[in-house]
Write a protein that binds this DNA or RNA. Structure first.
Lengths: 209, 209, 209, 209
DNA sequence: TATGAATGAGATTTCATTCAT
DNA sequence: GATGAATGAAATCTCATTCAT
């Protein structure tokens, strides 16, 4: 009997937390990172300021939870893509296509977190601490690149640099969407990125007709 | 007589503005975007808080002017690179090498402005208003891509998408340097980017041994 | 039948109140006066916050009850000491010895109530209202002093002033223990106080050798 | 020339700080320690909240400065008394008379600081750090007691315990005045204390007629 | 009666901006 | 023009108290 009510409580708590995380995302979309105040999050969730503090110790904790969820989802999606594709090249292509689609939708939130990440050293510290999904995600990508190079699917390049460039492309395109100075559709962007990864941009002298 | 003193006044005003812009950059480097307070800018410039307001209407105006100068410099440098190289591919390569070098040095400032840009819709609006160096810079790059494609130096791709990707790479690498989660040297990064642009990453089936 | 259940109810209520009073003391010992929150009291009593309000109108009421109990106990102990000793001087000596022992143990709680007493005018008002154990305790001590003077056991002094000084010593020593800036043992302190009361500190000219 | 304006500035700053310290004391007298808010201090000083922060880093700093001044004054007064009197017994008597007079006036403030001292571990730490007037004051009193014992002016007692008792009496009487449950005049109190110190309270068997 | 989530007043602190000197 | 003290809006966080379940 006890268990039932405890279970219920847990579920409700989970629901509330999710509601606050959702509210946070909405506020971020509407007001951006500097407009993210506890007051607004509470208002958006339809409760009062104090209530948020019943679920999250402080603002950092709230932001941290939202970020963790986003990254964890991203990591899961990426992991599935990598498992689904035997070929590294195919995995990379699918990753890019998926990411472009999802980031177009969440462009503002992704960008807001980029800022949070940059502004709060605490956040950075926690991300690079221990076995965090963020690090695991980075490792997965680097691993894909290394395996691809070993198997001869990818050209031989510095895998750290290449991972960094990939991240830059994915985040940068998000940011441009969020900033409103990129209006191309996600599939156009993914096609272009894949085309770049497949053929490069510059035609070498000996390739020219 | 009047004119001479007016000229003098103008020069002094120009010097003061430059001093404030320089101070702003220094503060950004040392304290980051959220640490950019009028107090600190004034202190770094060796004057008092109130004086800054004699030259800039408000904080936005100050930030705006600094950004404008940075972008204008960037545009000039880019223009020179493009003029110096007859080959589009060479121009692109030099652009990347130069940018990596300069962005490594100014990583914090570049990233700070990315944030400013994202946080202040006003800033975005002004960037895309009128004939602004930012738009002109974008146009130059897009033009380079188009010319390169026409001349057969570049593969045929959507030039807007390609420009967006290039921007993403340059800004993203800056950001990673600023965040401390990229430690590779600028020449390693430019080599990797150029290698990607030249050969791509994925080896096509018919290329494989 | 009604009466039995009412009796039971009363007993339960009394037990609950005592539990809360005990919890309050524990919290005071662990967290001090500013750390005394309703949350902590409830937690320490093993119930929820709301329950405390079923037994005490508000925080003041709770604190008030705890103080009342403490003072009432003190009054009882003092009364017993006074009854046990025929000699006023012996009674005073035993009082001091007992008080030093008990106050060393409860230094934090005593001090906390000193604060409560000072912070809440309401509390002071109630203490001096009606026939309160606090007033009764004061009267008992004053009475002891007066009787002692009449019997020639004590020198003749203003009994109100003397009572005030005695109180000051007892509370002050508690406070210094609580603050951590007194480390002498209770028996050393009681010996010193008794020595002072017996012989004074200053040697008169005509006593000197 | 520069010097003149700097001097003026310093004087103004000093005056402002003093004004805030005075305002703090007034607020303490009127609202007690828990009623001491920055808002009220500012209001009492006739400025706005933010202005207080131009002179004191934070609330602690303000409180700290006020306490330091009080204790420093007390130390100076005590030092002078000790220097004025060759006899230790006379010095002690004068100290008590002076303290009773000054503490009657500042009873609320003294008591408030007792509370501050108890509530803020930070404050305690700083008080017992290094060569602080508070420690120096304690040492002076202990020294007086020791000298008096050596010279045969005081009976031989544990000087630490005796200092503790003296402190307890002085602070305790302050507190009782502040709490309103002591209405005797300062001179009555000092006479009683001195009488206690000179003759004790309890008459020994062999002294009895 | 017990619960504990929700509330919201209130406290501290920061900082862009103003304005008298 | 320069100054920098004063301002006050706004943000974070705490906790006594209420109330629906």
């Amino acid at each position: 009997m006890q268990k039932l009510s405890e279970k219920k409580k847990e579920i409700v708590e989970e629901m509330m937390k999710e509601a606050f995380q959702h509210a946070t995302c909405t506020v971020l979309e509407e007001c951006g990172w500097p407009g993210l105040t506890m007051e607004r999050v509470a208002e958006k969730a339809g409760v009062s300021k104090g209530t948020v503090y019943n679920y999250f110790k402080d603002k950092r904790e709230l932001v941290w939870c939202v970020m963790e969820k986003l990254i964890s989802d991203l990591e899961k999606r990426t992991g599935e893509i990598f498992r689904r594709n035997e070929s590294c090249a195919d995995a990379l292509r699918e990753l890019i296509r998926e990411e472009m689609l999802s980031r177009k939708k969440n462009a503002n939130i992704m960008t807001a977190f980029l800022h949070a990440f940059h502004e709060e050293p605490e956040l950075r510290k926690r991300m690079f601490d221990k076995r965090h999904p963020f690090l695991s995600l980075q490792a997965m990508i680097e691993d894909l690149l290394e395996r691809g190079m070993e198997k001869g699917e990818f050209r031989s390049m510095d895998p750290v640099a290449m991972r960094s460039i990939l991240n830059a492309i994915l985040m940068g395109v998000s940011r441009q969407w969020a900033g409103g100075h990129l209006t191309l559709a996600p599939d156009v962007m993914s096609d272009s990125i894949i085309s770049l990864l497949t053929d490069g941009l510059i035609i070498k002298g000996d390739d020219r007709p």
